[in-house]
């Protein structure tokens, strides 16, 4: 009897339990919704709104400061990158300059040509003197018969038997450049300021005058607007190498 009543009372409680449970859920849902609604700006009092605006403004200001800082950093970084670019471009320029010096690249520019015809009695040291004088007059690139004159260029001579039918073996000396015989006419091209180069050769008592008067060599000097001087053949270094440790030092030096 009693258990029956108990079970009955429990059964009786189940709808209540369900309803209470659902009511609890509803209540909490409404509570949270209301909280969200309270958080919405529409429902704030004007004083609160003023506070919110003020704090938002403060926040905005601090963010703007941060933005300015970051933009400054960005500008600095860009500057760094740009200076890196200019560094590499200056290195490239330097390499180009060095290649004009070493003859690594074909160069063009105004200058003079010195032409020596076959009948002249020129000796190899006359050629050396001429090239020397051209460099002394500010030539930036010199070639002889389209062989670029570099620091490895050797001008020498060799003796060949003269073709004359004479019984005496008359020897004739032909100039060589890098061991190759120079064919006439010998054309020396020099890039530089044309008039300076010309004056450097033709001034009174200069090399042309002495060649004229002493050796009866009459080189023809012509100014040219656009000379092309080819690149030198690559020279392979076997022994000389820059020390590895001083490489950094060198770069700092070149800067």
């Amino acid at each position: 009897m009693r258990t029956n009543r108990n079970t009955k009372s429990i059964l009786w409680m189940i709808p209540l339990f369900v309803v209470f449970f659902c009511f609890g859920l509803l209540l909490m849902a409404q509570y949270h919704t209301h909280q969200n609604e309270n958080d919405a700006l529409v429902n704030e009092s004007s004083a609160n709104l003023a506070m919110i605006i003020k704090s938002a403004n403060d926040n905005k200001e601090s963010l703007q400061d941060e933005l300015a800082l970051l933009q400054q950093q960005l500008a600095e970084s860009e500057e760094l990158i740009a200076s890196g670019n200019s560094l590499s471009s200056s290195i490239r320029n330097r390499i180009a300059n060095l290649q004009t010096v070493t003859g690594g690249k074909q160069v063009t520019g105004p200058g003079v040509t010195v032409t020596i015809t076959g009948e002249s009695n020129i000796m190899y040291y006359d050629l050396i003197d001429l090239v020397n004088e051209l460099f002394a007059s500010g030539a930036e690139a010199v070639s002889i018969n389209d062989t670029r004159f570099t620091m490895h260029t050797v001008i020498s001579e060799k003796a060949v038997a003269s073709q004359s039918g004479n019984t005496y073996q008359q020897e004739k000396y032909v100039p060589l450049i890098n061991g190759k015989e120079l064919l006439y006419p010998i054309v020396i091209k020099a890039i530089g300021d044309p008039s300076t180069l010309e004056t450097g050769l033709t001034y009174p008592g200069g090399i042309i005058e002495s060649l004229n008067s002493l050796y009866m060599v009459y080189p023809v000097i012509r100014k040219a607007e656009n000379l092309v001087i080819p690149a030198a053949e690559d020279y392979l270094y076997h022994y000389a190498a820059p020390p590895e440790s001083s490489e950094e030092e060198q770069t700092t030096d070149t800067r």
Binding site: F17, F23, G24, L27, T33, E37, A40
Partner: peptide, 28 residues
Amino acid sequence: TIWLPLLGLVVGLLLGSIFTLSIPIAYA
């Protein structure tokens, strides 16, 4: 047994707050 419905209410409230049930403000 009188506590059973109240237990239901408490469980409902707890579940509601744990899962932070809420609906769009438009339907509040």
